Amino acid sequence: MFLSRLLLLPFLIAFAAPVASHEFWIEPDQYQVPIGGTLQADFKNGQNFRGTTLAFFDRRSETYALITNGNRSELMPRAGDRPALRVPAPDRDALAVVIHETAPSTLTYKEWAKFLKFAAHKDFQTAASDHSAAGWPMEGFKERYTRHAKSLMAVGSGAGADASTGMQTEFVALSNPYAADFDGQMRVRVLYQGAVRPDAQVEVFDRARAGDVTVTLHRTDAQGEVAIPVVSGHSYIFDAVVLRPAADMADPGKDPVWETLWAALTFAVP
């Protein structure tokens, strides 16, 4: 028993460690699988499409499901499973949509400058002034964060469409990158609590076949939508973050004063 707990310790530490400004995403082993094959993917945490592989732990998961052809199946791997996803693919063509929402985690900002850097990076233009106006501490304050990840995988031809899944925040793919008539423009809608997010920053991580990664910034329109050009043979992470004051904060010296909700979408273009 002691040995098994010791072997799990690195995964627990990796999943619980503070990771401010780090993306979390679902990375399939293969984005296209044959009918009757296996859907396999890892949880990843890191930067610029490079990161640590994380194990699944049920106490760290709020929502984990597979949606194909309108049918939703809740997923429950064993604690410590890596890869976090390994399930039989459907027996017909489908766009397989994997979603995962994490339980809340907390980090501490020991330096005001780090919060300012994060706020600038994610384009929270009033965060610093709002923080100061609230009279919150400028050092040693806490943030609570959750991850809301989605991945699109093709089974067979990949026929199908994405839709809102009810996550707190998410990307909804308005294009199917695996469709035969895909035009190279990935259209997505960004949602927060079911409502569209106009003028939201979308950070795009574009990984070429050789592994080179480029990062670009985009913004949603008044309908919360954006069309982003993508390239055949590349894989992508789309990232969008919500920052909001923590509603249950009672003591700003002890409780989280901010909450962040991170939406991520991964897919590849054949």
Rank of each mutant, 00 (worst) to 15 (best):
L9V: 07
P10Y: 08
L12H: 15
L12G: 08
L12D: 11
A14Y: 07
V19D: 15
E27G: 03
P28H: 06
P28V: 04
D29N: 10
Q30A: 12
Q30C: 01
Q32N: 04
P34T: 08
I35Q: 10
G37T: 09
Q40N: 02
D42E: 14
D42H: 15
K44L: 14
N45P: 00
N45D: 02
Q47H: 09
R50G: 03
T52N: 04
E62Y: 07
E62P: 00
T63D: 04
I67D: 03
T68Q: 05
N69V: 01
N69W: 00
G70H: 01
N71R: 10
R72E: 13
P77G: 06
R82A: 07
A84V: 11
R86H: 10
V87A: 07
D93S: 04
V97G: 03
V97E: 03
V98A: 07
I99M: 04
I99N: 08
H100I: 00
A103W: 04
T108I: 11
K110P: 00
A113P: 03
A113E: 15
F115Y: 13
L116A: 13
A120V: 04
H121L: 08
H121D: 12
D123L: 06
D123S: 13
F124S: 02
A128F: 06
A128N: 10
A134F: 07
M138Q: 15
K142G: 04
M153V: 15
S157N: 09
A161K: 14
A163H: 11
S164T: 10
T165N: 12
T165H: 14
E170D: 08
V172A: 04
S175N: 08
F182S: 01
F182L: 02
D183H: 01
Y192S: 11
Y192D: 10
G194M: 07
A195V: 02
R197D: 00
D199R: 02
A208S: 15
A208W: 05
G211D: 06
V213W: 02
V213T: 13
H218K: 13
R219K: 14
A222R: 14
A227V: 01
A227L: 02
P229L: 05
S232M: 03
H234R: 13
Y236T: 04
D239A: 09
L243M: 10
P245S: 09
A247G: 13
G253S: 08
D255Y: 09
P256N: 06
L261I: 08
W262Q: 13
W262I: 02
A263K: 05
L265K: 07
T266V: 08
